[in-house]
Computed example of a mutant assay.
Amino acid sequence: MWIFLLQRSTLLLFLVASVAVARDREPRVRNVYIRDNPKDEAERVYVTGEVVTVLRFQQPCDPARTKMLGWEGRFVPVECAGKRVLVEPLQNLEPKDRFLLLVTLADGKELPFTVTAIGDKEWERPDQQVNVFLAPETQDALRAQLEDTRTRQKLLEEANRRHWEENTEDHALAKLLKNGSVRLTPLKARQRWILKKVGMTVEATFLTGKAKAAVLFRVTNHNKFNPWSLSEARLLTTRPGETAPVLFGEAKPFALQKDWEELAPGASGYLAVVVDKSAFKSREGACDLTVELYRQDGLLDAHVLLDRRLVRE
């Protein structure tokens, strides 16, 4: 079983990107509702370098009394434009950065905001526009709250759908793999690659099975200060014989399971990907597949090539 693996050097080629391939972090428009409660914390605003974030209010702001503390050298000067306040950092902020933005409205009301860096959580995506409502009973605020309710309902429906989709044989196999129970699966390990790069080590074990193929990743975070997490994984078609990353291949379904949400400095974790034989067929015929792993900042951190011959009939 090892012969065909050794004869073709590119069969299970493991590659880690040496250049940063950015995946767009989609900006968002969201609504916040500020009430006169002294215990409420300042609303956070998530910003990213060289991108303008707009805070939109229900009345004009006072330019003379709207300011940010400690912005010098880090931001373009804050600008008031009618009912809008524009915030633009000159570069990406560090996760620990916090800047106090004090917005004063035309009626003299002061509203504090905490401007900070984006993160890997869903609510820490970069803000494109933040609609600020002070009177929740107004028509605009009620309309915004209705839209927020509809959005939450849609997200719940999508979460339920994903849960149903994960109740499959492939996901069950992936769970066993990431838990270290390879012997309980019909899959057999056939090759292992280890690659070390600055800040991390990635080990990939390739497995073959009847009508299935899989790859088990062991990721170790060597960064002394920052955690590592997975933003997204993709499975794309690759023409037989090609080894370069595929940016525009046909996306294919797969099962993914991991035993961690975030790898702290020095920690290791397992991530398993299971692929059905049907995924190795494209519109052009038989194909290989590329698994791509994107880290928390949206950059392509690693990709592996899965040869179609891993699947046994």
Rank of each mutant, 00 (worst) to 15 (best):
W2L: 04
V16N: 11
A17Y: 09
V19I: 14
A22E: 13
A22W: 11
V29L: 09
V32T: 01
I34A: 01
P38A: 05
R44F: 11
Y46E: 03
T53Q: 12
V54I: 07
L55C: 00
L55Y: 09
L55I: 00
R56F: 06
P63S: 05
A64L: 15
L69V: 14
G70F: 05
E72R: 02
G73Y: 02
G82F: 04
R84S: 15
V85N: 10
V87S: 08
P89F: 13
P89K: 06
R98I: 12
G108L: 12
E110N: 02
P112V: 10
V115D: 04
T116G: 06
I118E: 10
D120H: 15
W123M: 15
Q128E: 03
Q129S: 10
F133A: 00
E137G: 03
L142M: 07
R143L: 11
A144P: 12
D148L: 09
D148V: 07
R150V: 12
T151M: 07
K154W: 03
L155G: 12
L155D: 11
A172M: 13
A172Y: 11
A174R: 12
K175E: 10
L176H: 07
N179P: 12
G180F: 02
K196G: 11
G199H: 02
F206H: 04
F206D: 00
L207V: 04
L207W: 00
G209W: 07
K210A: 05
A211M: 15
T220H: 01
T220D: 05
N221I: 01
A233C: 12
T237G: 08
T237D: 05
V246I: 10
F248Q: 15
G249W: 01
E250R: 01
D259F: 03
W260R: 13
A264F: 06
P265Q: 13
S268A: 09
G269W: 00
L271T: 03
G285S: 02
E292P: 15
R295H: 06
G298D: 07
L300S: 08
R308Y: 03
R308H: 09
R309Y: 15
R312L: 10
